[in-house]
Write a protein that binds this DNA or RNA. Structure first.
Length: 309
DNA sequence: ACTCTGTCCTGGAAGC
DNA sequence: TGCTTCCAGGACAGAG
């Protein structure tokens, strides 16, 4: 399940190989993968053809590649926006390599214009079709006029690895929220890039129960929690991201190995590693929360007294 | 204004 | 064996 570290691994791979390459041709094999492109699949193909791909950017789980249309007068800057959803992959291959099973979109690239052994095709593969590609206009952000982001990403909050990430501002917002802390962690408008895996891992590290009301957390607890988010994401990035199966891979099709470092997520029934080190044999538990699983240690992460859903 | 649920999707696993 | 049901969850529309 791609969250921030996985998307960043993909961004770095793309940056190395596709920057300054021209799109020779585009093929949409499943129109559902471009459903967020309002003007439809045909416009997607014709608008992307002959565009030159610039340095890929990211905010949270959103990835975008600014486009440069060499021969055409630039109306306003645009970008190819990528969201991997649940199972999306960006793969760089030779165009003659066999097509993977869930191949949805292919971009033929002009490898001759760039690096010698560059791949000749960018492929979007997506089993569950929650992800997709679309074109969008780039606009300056509200607080940094030199920073351009797609209009559809303006409502997304800065992520924990962003230089302008401001934890005191986050605390101010959280102190007014009634809702459970995990719901706030997963809310991409406040802070982006956190999904179910890193939410559970950060809460475990910070020893906070997923159902703790936001407005009952101290400034210190909020600081600690977001430091834990940053630490767990930095470690995951170092280890190439989390892969449970073939659903998440980097641009070369390789899996990350952060799943071996997980302390809570997917660890139901296993000993809590921290408790074990302290001489307790507590098991990690799984609760249903927000229609998904929440993994936690019942000793380290005590339930709030007033349990609300 | 804020909070929360339902929906989109596929395929592997579990249940009968 | 073969069928059905469940489960995974990111983002957003729309309900409360």
């Amino acid at each position: 399940m791609p969250e921030l570290p996985e998307v960043e691994v993909v961004r770095r791979g793309l940056s190395r190989w596709i920057t300054n390459q021209e799109v020779l041709d585009v093929e949409v094999l499943d129109p559902r993968s471009v459903r967020r492109h309002r003007q439809g699949p045909i416009d997607f193909v014709t608008s992307l053809r002959q565009a030159v791909l610039e340095q890929p950017q990211r905010r949270g789980k959103y990835l975008w590649i600014p486009l440069h249309h060499a021969p055409i007068e630039q109306k306003s800057p645009t970008a190819l926006v990528v969201h991997l959803g649940m199972s999306g992959q960006i793969l760089l291959s030779h165009h003659s390599a066999p097509a993977p099973h869930h191949l949805r979109i292919r971009l033929r690239l002009d490898s001759a214009s760039g690096h010698g052994q560059a791949p000749t095709e960018l492929r979007f593969v997506d089993q569950r079709i929650f992800g997709g590609l679309y074109l969008d206009r780039l606009v300056p952000t509200a607080d940094e006029p030199d920073e351009l982001i797609p209009t559809t990403v303006t409502h997304i909050g800065r992520d924990p690895l962003d230089n302008h990430f401001d934890v005191d501002h986050i605390y101010q917002v959280l102190s007014k929220k009634q809702t459970a802390i995990k719901r706030a962690l997963l809310d991409q408008n406040l802070v982006s890039g956190i999904g179910n895996i890193y939410a559970d891992e950060a809460l475990w590290r910070a020893k906070i129960h997923y159902n703790r009301p936001c407005n009952r957390l101290s400034r210190k607890q909020v600081r600690t929690l977001y430091q834990c988010v940053q630490k767990v994401m930095e470690q995951a990035l170092k280890e190439g991201g989390t892969s449970f199966d073939a659903l998440y891979v980097n641009v070369n099709g390789e899996s990350g190995y952060f799943d071996r470092s997980l302390n809570a997520y997917h660890q139901e029934g296993k000993y809590c590693r921290r408790c074990l080190a302290e001489g307790y044999d507590t098991f990690i538990r799984r609760d249903k929360f927000m229609n998904r699983s929440s993994y936690y240690c019942p000793r380290c992460q005590r339930k709030p007294r007033t349990t609300q859903r």
